[in-house]
Amino acid sequence: MRMIEILLTVIAMLLALTLAGVSFIAYRKSHLRAALYLLIAFLLFAIKKVIEALSISRGIEKDIGLLINSLEVLVLLLLILALWRR
């Protein structure tokens, strides 16, 4: 069960990095601020997934609840910003 959890976390992380890559190219081409916000949001999401994967595999023993929740709020705020401002 833990293996499947880690596998899904890694897939989510890879997808987030792919989207971050696409956002980076889009920002370089257009200089749209929204693309920059998306790039940061996807990178933060990937970091969140790394922390979660480490936590599942017992690489991190500390309580990560606060950190994960903070990252989630940041990601959502950046997504709102991307919708709000071009």
Partner: peptide, 14 residues
């Protein structure tokens, strides 16, 4: 493929 995806994202955002 990457540039095509980025173009689509730009179109969505704009």
């Amino acid at each position: 493929i990457w540039e095509t995806l980025a173009d689509r994202l730009i179109d969505i955002l704009t």
